[in-house]
């Protein structure tokens, strides 16, 4: 047993003795990871046009979806936080539930709505990036809304009266409050973007993972994994992680800089 293992491993230094089967598996595993990293490196360094296209589309779709969700989520979240109305608690509970909306459910409903015979079928946007933006915006909006709402509610209740008493119009008051809640609102941007860039279920359902048209990093990863092309899948995964890291790093820089002031 031992001799055989050593035979097989003669090209590789073994830091500590392991039962051969485990060693073999570990070796395969490490090899796979390294191949993936090497592949990712190769794809990035050589600006592989297909991968670049997929990455760019991911960024574009998720970026626009996040932007839309910020417009809707922050304005509605702030409006709900600042107004008292009957059933407010139920609305907040619904939003908080929506923060964990399963992407596949969103995908399902968006598909039904834009299906050729559905209510918005005439738009003909099924299996397009537009459909993906819509689905992702629906996923991100409750996340952004929930965090914005909590952020504004977390400010001192007298703060808005104080701002109004200094002569602010309602709009000026809201803008000052948003500026004051900048830190958690940037967290909302990160959470929203993080939620949709990594989302696959809805994107594959409404986008269709069409090569060169609606294929994004996550859907491509799913496809390559199911084909057994682990190296490409890992490469795509690494690109996705790097993308998420870079975006969050930049946002964190803004967030923490504001804090230090």
């Amino acid at each position: 047993m031992r001799g055989k293992g050593e035979d097989e491993n003669k090209d590789y230094p073994r830091p500590f003795p392991l039962p051969s089967r485990v060693g073999k598996c570990l070796r395969c595993f490490v090899e796979l990871i390294f191949q993936g990293i090497a592949k990712a490196f190769e794809l990035i360094v050589h600006f592989n046009p297909e991968v670049m296209g997929i990455t760019w589309l991911s960024l574009k779709v998720s970026g626009i979806a996040t932007f839309i969700s910020l417009l809707i989520g922050i304005s509605l979240g702030v409006a709900i936080a600042l107004n008292n109305f009957y059933g407010k608690k139920i609305v907040i509970s619904l939003i908080n539930t929506g923060m964990g909306l399963p992407p596949v459910v969103v995908g399902l409903f968006v598909t039904i709505f834009i299906w050729r015979s559905g209510p918005f079928g005439s738009l003909g946007i099924l299996y397009t990036p537009t459909a993906m933006i819509i689905a992702q915006a629906i996923i991100a909006t409750p996340i952004v809304m929930g965090i914005s709402l909590a952020a504004i509610q977390n400010l001192h209740p007298n703060l808005r009266l104080q701002i109004l008493s200094l002569g602010a119009s309602r709009l000026q008051m809201v803008l000052v409050l948003i500026k004051e809640a900048k830190l958690p609102l940037l967290a909302a941007v990160m959470a929203g973007f993080g939620g949709v860039i990594s989302e696959v279920g809805a994107s594959i359902m409404v986008g269709g993972n069409i090569k060169g048209y609606s294929r994004v990093l996550t859907t491509a990863t799913v496809m390559e994994t199911s084909k057994g092309n682990f190296d490409i899948a890992i490469a795509l995964g690494i690109i996705l992680l790097m993308l998420a890291f870079v975006i969050n790093f930049l946002l964190t820089q803004i967030q923490q800089r504001q804090r230090l002031r």
């Binding site: 001192h156 007298n158 703060l159 009266l161 104080q162 109004l164 008493s165 200094l166 002569g167 119009s169 000052v176 500026k179 004051e180 002031r261």
Partner: peptide
Amino acid sequence: HTLRRQVSVVFQEPLLLNSA
């Protein structure tokens, strides 16, 4: 709005914004 522009309130808590 006119009234709010002519009077100002100081609350129990300072309620300062997170800036200079």
